Amino acid sequence: MTRTITLIAATALLSLGACAKKRPEVLPPAPVGSGADAGAGVADPNAAGGAVVPGSDADFQRSVTSNTILFALDQYDIDAQARSILDSQVEWLNRYPNVRITIEGHADERGTREYNLGLGDRRANAAKNYLAARGVSPARISVISYGKERPVALGSDEGSWARNRRAVTVIIGQ
Rank of each mutant, 00 (worst) to 15 (best):
T2D: 13
R3S: 09
R3K: 12
T4K: 12
T4W: 08
T4V: 14
I5W: 07
I5Y: 10
T6Q: 12
L7N: 13
L7M: 13
I8T: 07
A10E: 00
A10C: 15
A10P: 03
T11H: 01
A12K: 06
A12Q: 10
L13N: 10
L14P: 05
L14T: 02
L16H: 08
L16M: 01
G17A: 07
A18R: 11
C19G: 06
C19W: 08
K21A: 11
K22G: 07
K22D: 04
R23W: 10
R23S: 10
P24V: 08
P24M: 02
P28S: 10
P29H: 06
A30L: 15
P31H: 02
G33T: 05
G33Q: 09
G33I: 00
S34M: 05
G35M: 00
G39Y: 12
A40N: 15
A40Q: 15
G41F: 02
A43V: 11
A43H: 08
D44M: 07
D44N: 15
A47I: 10
G50F: 10
A51H: 08
V52S: 11
V53H: 09
P54Y: 06
P54D: 06
P54T: 03
P54R: 07
D57P: 05
D57N: 15
A58K: 07
Q61T: 04
S63A: 12
T65L: 14
S66I: 04
F71D: 07
A72L: 05
A72K: 09
D74H: 02
D79S: 14
A80D: 12
Q81E: 15
Q81V: 15
I85H: 01
Q89S: 07
V90W: 00
V90I: 02
E91W: 04
E91C: 02
E91K: 12
W92H: 05
N94R: 15
N94K: 15
N94G: 13
R95Y: 08
Y96N: 06
P97A: 02
N98E: 03
N98F: 05
R100M: 13
R100E: 09
I101M: 00
I101H: 11
I103P: 12
I103A: 08
E104V: 14
G105N: 05
G105R: 03
H106N: 12
E109C: 03
E109Q: 08
R110I: 02
R110S: 14
G111F: 09
R113S: 13
R113Y: 14
R113L: 14
R113H: 14
E114N: 10
N116H: 01
N116Q: 14
N116G: 01
L117S: 09
L117I: 04
G118R: 13
R122E: 15
R122L: 13
A124R: 01
A124W: 02
A124T: 06
A126M: 07
A126V: 01
A127Q: 00
N129I: 04
A132G: 01
A133S: 14
A133L: 11
R134H: 08
G135S: 00
P138I: 02
R140M: 10
R140F: 03
R140H: 00
I141E: 07
V143D: 00
V143Q: 04
I144Q: 09
Y146L: 06
G147I: 08
E149H: 11
R150T: 10
G155L: 13
S156A: 14
D157Y: 07
G159W: 01
G159L: 14
G159F: 15
A162Q: 08
R163F: 04
R166A: 05
R166P: 00
R166V: 00
V168F: 10
V168K: 13
T169Q: 10
I171R: 09
G173S: 01
G173N: 11
